[in-house]
Write a protein that binds this DNA or RNA. Structure first.
Lengths: 210, 210
DNA sequence: ACAAATTTAGACAGGCTTGTCTAATTCGTC
DNA sequence: GACGAATTAGACAAGCCTGTCTAAATTTGT
């Protein structure tokens, strides 16, 4: 495993102040000097890690957003699958867990660094998700007033039952993820779904809206 | 400010490893020796803080749960007010912020301690909130299948727009809290509200629908 | 006012960590 | 195989932190 990846793991486990370079070197299987050669000092290494994680997480989120069901066959099932993918690929995976933890633990100490994350991350991903819901509503699949609010509520509902686990830094089981997404999406559709789920009119509806 | 309160503040700001006893002593206005006299060592002090915060937060949460609108005059307004109270008294206040931060940053290092928190905290508060929603549904104000799920989703929706701020350890403005609660409760009621909001027929309606 | 208990400042040893330095070793490439 | 670049182990100084100790000062109860 690379130095940066190992360092991310150690910083997350031990916190910035609690981690030490020898520990990272040992786990990465390199000498301490090599770390100093590559990254200068502990703080520069930390910044490199956050930038790296931000970039990779963003890429994962956008990749997953691109799988959003624009022409759903089964709206409920497709949205559940999307929510599960989002959890899997962006929230529960290594990078997602690490970035979240670093933001939570060190956010206060590096305001500029995490302001940068906020702009590059949530600042760009939320509008992208909201745009997908807006399109889905426009195509007649959903009844949404404010797509930004709906997007945030969708994610909040999908993760509603995983909060305590996330808080403690744990990873929910596959079943828990699916269960939370299922319950969340059902509630979401009770709130925003069309009354009659337009059966086979989907093709016309989709074309008309595209 | 007491030693324990000051220590909580410093541990949150600096993390366990990053905090030092001299800092706490200086901010608390006592000598280092006094801290050692009272609490033994750094780790015991930390445990005392978590226990203290858990207890106080739990008390606050139960006190707020007791203000749940069992006989709402205006269901939407009453639930919004409840959600805002919950945020104010339990999540955004000093104790709530500190406990959340300590759980997030040190949860991995003290599994037993935070397992204790999980039992005493979420393990008891979630059922209490769920029971209130169950009663409200039973009285005919809501249409809920699973009160446990509904309770978690209610809180998730009420806080949906505050997540990013919480992540970075910030405190949302009053407006943001109200806005998030309002949007969340409206969506919640779109999902779980009775079709016709039973106006003044509340007594009859409740009986008829129950 | 006095005695007991608590608190204080400061010194102190021991341990750990950062970041640098050096000399030897290994690696990649021709 | 040979040469230059990168990596390594280990020593090292400087600094910081924990936890203890002591003797003086302060507070508390009576």
């Amino acid at each position: 495993m690379s130095i940066v990846d190992t360092a991310a793991s150690v910083f997350c486990r031990e916190s910035f102040a609690g981690a030490n370079i020898d520990m990272i070197a040992a786990e990465a299987g390199v000498s301490r000097q090599t770390i100093y050669n590559h990254h200068g000092d502990k703080e520069k290494l930390f910044v490199a890690i956050v930038r790296d994680l931000t970039e990779r997480c963003n890429a994962g989120i956008f990749a997953t957003i691109s799988t959003f069901p624009d022409q759903p066959k089964d709206l409920e099932a497709d949205l559940i699958a999307f929510a599960v993918r989002m959890n899997h690929n962006c929230i529960c995976n290594r990078d997602g867990k690490f970035l979240r933890k670093l933001i939570q633990t060190e956010g206060g100490r590096y305001p500029e660094l995490f302001a940068e994350w906020r702009e590059e991350g949530p600042g760009r991903t939320w509008p992208a998700i909201a745009a997908r819901f807006a399109r889905l509503a426009h195509a007649g699949f959903l009844d949404i007033d404010d797509p930004d609010v709906a997007a945030r509520q969708f994610m909040a509902l999908a993760n509603a039952e995983l909060q305590t686990t996330f808080m403690l830094g744990g990873t929910p089981t596959e079943d828990e993820v699916v269960q939370s997404a299922t319950n969340g999406v059902r509630t979401f559709l009770r709130a925003f779904g069309k009354r009659q789920p337009m059966a086979r009119a989907s093709k016309q509806g989709a074309l008309a809206s595209a």
